[in-house]
């Protein structure tokens, strides 16, 4: 197998915009995302439903083309990919785990067959393919059910198998769309552990969409998407606001609900290393 050169940053988004045209209406899903994910990083995409997390994930998988902005995945410019090269990107560099365990797999195929099905277009060779399959299934704790039909595995086993399938071709980037949302807590933590293990052992970069803060916090970074923008980023237990390309900043929801409700006028007071925001009261300013 040819050793592919790994880009320094696995994901690089600059002003990423995605607009859907549906039934004559345009819906803007992403409004200028700037995001960089270095190789080997693990990132959780958080945010409310409809914020644009999954859209960002599909863009990273090459299933969509950005409407505007620049997107590079594993050193390839997604804007320029045609169907064939997008498929090639997914085959060699990007693995995807979907939310619905059943949707990740060929239900009639065995667990091993599913892994090999994902490998086959990459032509790894029969022996190498079998070795990799066994290795992955053992790593996922599925060695004893390798020859059982995927449709007959439990939900947890199916999702672990889905991770194995996604990792079959040693991708640089593993994308997971709420991989644990339909699993019980035990199964969910097993899946997350496996993903983290792959990150640690193979250096696979991980971008995972999740609603679960616990799952999110188990990864190194959390990116919160709100209204199509990167609203915040968390690292090492700290939550940070992110300044957008147009200068906007999304305040945390608790601040919006209590201190600075929508419509509040604020004054930005520059400081040595940033800016302080204060509620502004124009009538008092006038009297003063």
């Amino acid at each position: 197998m040819a050793v592919r050169e790994r880009a320094e940053d696995t994901v690089r988004c600059e002003g990423l915009v995605q607009v859907y045209g549906t039934l004559g209406q345009e819906v803007t899903a992403l409004r200028g995302i700037d995001l960089t994910v270095p190789a080997g990083d693990t990132v959780a995409l958080l945010g409310p439903s409809g914020a644009g997390k999954s859209t960002l994930l599909w863009l990273l998988a090459g299933l969509l083309k950005p409407t505007a902005g620049r997107l590079e995945v594993c050193g390839r410019r997604v804007n320029d990919l045609n169907r064939r090269s997008a498929a090639d990107l997914r085959l060699h560099d990007v693995g995807v785990v979907l939310q619905n365990p059943g949707r990740n797999l060929l239900a009639n195929e065995t667990a091993a067959g599913n892994v090999m099905f994902a490998q086959r277009p990459a032509h790894p060779g029969r022996a190498a393919s079998r070795r990799r399959t066994d290795e992955l299934l053992e790593a996922m704790g599925l060695g004893r059910v390798a020859h059982r039909q995927a449709g007959r595995l439990s939900g947890g086993e199916q999702q672990r198998l889905a991770v194995a399938v996604a990792l079959a071709n040693r991708p640089q980037l593993l994308l997971a769309d709420e991989p644990t949302s339909q699993l019980d807590r035990t199964s969910a933590s097993t899946v997350i552990d496996l993903i983290r293990s792959a990150n640690e052992s193979e250096g696979t970069t991980v971008v995972m969409v999740t609603h679960d803060p616990v799952v999110g916090n188990s990864l190194r970074r959390t990116i919160t998407i709100r209204d199509g923008r990167v609203g915040a980023e968390g690292q090492a237990g700290q939550e940070y606001l992110v300044v957008s390309r147009d200068g906007s900043v999304q305040l945390p929801s608790e601040v919006l609900e209590t201190t600075l409700p929508p419509g509040t006028l604020i004054r930005a007071v520059p400081t040595a290393d940033g800016v302080q925001l204060h509620r502004a009261r124009p009538e008092e300013d006038e009297r003063a």
Partner: peptide, 9 residues
């Protein structure tokens, strides 16, 4: 799913 796994046309 085949397309998702990177199979060509």
């Amino acid at each position: 799913l085949a397309k998702l796994r990177g199979r060509g046309a």
